[in-house]
């Protein structure tokens, strides 16, 4: 699995589409899943595709938390997904380099996304940070 991390608007998706033009882009933030079953189903449906780029991973975490999933449950699903698809590319925004927000749910979103990224990075064969459109390999 390949993990790409970087600030917003750094050209991550454009770079992925250039690198893997045949890949299907999975973006859970574009579904209007109302419950966690629906959310997870949209992930499982995408598993069938040949080459898969999972974009906006942070927004998936946000959505899953909002739908009441516990971080351990989210990670369990993500881990099984990654295990099933070793060729997966996960793209996630860096969202943790700002002022810690006042709102508890905003804090939780950043904290849990960060923790999830650490675990994903540990699992990944390659981790790259995209900075100004330039990938810098950090693992």
């Amino acid at each position: 699995m390949v993990l790409w991390i970087g600030g917003r608007a750094q050209g991550k998706l454009a770079l992925a589409m250039q690198k893997w033009p045949e890949a299907k882009i999975l973006d859970v933030s574009e579904t209007d899943a109302k419950g966690k079953e629906e959310l997870l189903r949209s992930l499982e449906d995408a598993l069938k595709d040949e080459r898969l780029v999972w974009n906006h991973f942070h927004l998936f975490v946000r959505r899953a938390l909002l739908l009441g999933m516990e971080p351990s449950e989210i990670w369990e699903k993500v881990a099984s997904f990654v295990d099933e698809r070793p060729d997966l590319v996960v793209i996630c925004d860096e969202i943790g380099n700002g002022i810690v927000p006042m709102e508890p749910e905003e804090r939780r979103y950043r904290e849990e996304t960060g923790r999830m990224l650490c675990k994903l990075a540990a699992k990944a064969d390659c981790v790259e940070r995209i900075f100004c459109g330039i990938p810098v390999r950090i693992k």
Partner: peptide
């Protein structure tokens, strides 16, 4: 580098971030 705070800004600021991100990436090329 103003792209890493995870805040969901309103449209005007989002567009500003897109523009600056694009200029950064193009010039980095």
């Amino acid at each position: 580098n103003v792209f890493e705070d995870g805040i969901d800004y309103e449209e005007g600021t989002r567009d500003y971030l897109r523009a600056l991100g694009m200029v950064n990436a193009e010039l980095a090329g």
